[in-house]
Design a protein around this nucleic acid. Structure first.
Ligand SMILES: [Zn+2]
Ligand SMILES: [Zn+2]
Ligand SMILES: [Zn+2]
Ligand SMILES: [Zn+2]
Lengths: 133, 133
DNA sequence: ACGAGTTTGACAATCATTCTCACCAGGGCA
DNA sequence: TGCCCTGGTGAGAATGATTGTCAAACTCGT
């Protein structure tokens, strides 16, 4: 059954809709608190987990192991190019990558092959912030 | 300067040489302890970190966020196909992936683009363990 | 409005990893 | 070979993100 619609769940969903950056549970919790929405940290974690399980949001791990979440425009499988300093992300396709991954896996006798393909860099805006090299 | 060669460092290096599986610091610590080599957990972590920094070993994160290490045959850039259940890994190349990643990054105005491309699945041996579906 | 069944949230618990810092040992040198 | 300086070690504490707990608050179908 669909989860109940609560004030908290709506707030988290809306916070995600509002930005195109990948953000951590802690960051979301803090900004929700700041904007007046009373909400517990555990609830933010639970909600994000559910949204992720349902494919509503994408999750990925930053270099230091923190999970960050983003509401992507498309629900279909895709990959990301994420800014290491601000979290801004662009959705990208890996034409050929999908097929390549499956082929390699089969060739090595592996089953249920999944792939992780993510790109990270410094976006133009963040680059300006420090000035041209 | 090169780090000193200590009994502990040698033990960790040897433990890594011995296997083709990605293993966690905790697992390595335990097996070293079991085989009689007295060594502290912190030392295992420190040593692995240094080896990783020096490009001696490859590191990657399991689904649950744990870091796992492996001494790969080649030091050059490459990717892996890892068994989710036993950690066994095969080194693979991503012909085209390297160039593709750089191109996408540049097209989006990102600099210093890095890429993460890892495959995971269930190896033939682990599949047998549970019997044919 | 009512009540069963969910959801919430303050706080404790987990757990991998890092930090501390007193003690120990590698190795260049005499 | 013996000394000494300096880097390495390790038991235990600290960190920090994430999860577990459970009584109180809330949803929603009736
Ligand atoms: Zn940026
Ligand atoms: Zn893909
Ligand atoms: Zn396996
Ligand atoms: Zn590559």
């Amino acid at each position: 059954m669909a989860p109940r619609m609560t004030r908290q769940r709506a707030a988290v969903a809306q916070a995600l809709e509002g930005s195109s950056d990948f953000r951590s549970a802690q960051q979301l919790h803090e900004s929700l608190r700041a904007s007046g929405d009373g909400i517990g940290l555990a609830t933010v974690y639970r909600t994000l987990q559910q949204l992720a399980d349902g494919g509503e949001v994408d999750v990925l791990r930053t270099a230091d192991g923190e999970s960050v979440y983003r509401r992507c425009a498309r629900r279909e499988h895709h990959h990301h190019l994420v800014c290491r300093s601000c979290g801004r992300a662009v959705e990208i396709d890996g034409p050929g990558v999908e097929e390549w991954a499956a082929r390699i896996g089969a060739a090595q006798g592996f089953a249920d092959v999944e792939h992780t393909v993510e790109l990270s860099g410094t976006c133009a805006r963040c680059r300006e912030a420090v000035g041209p090299a």
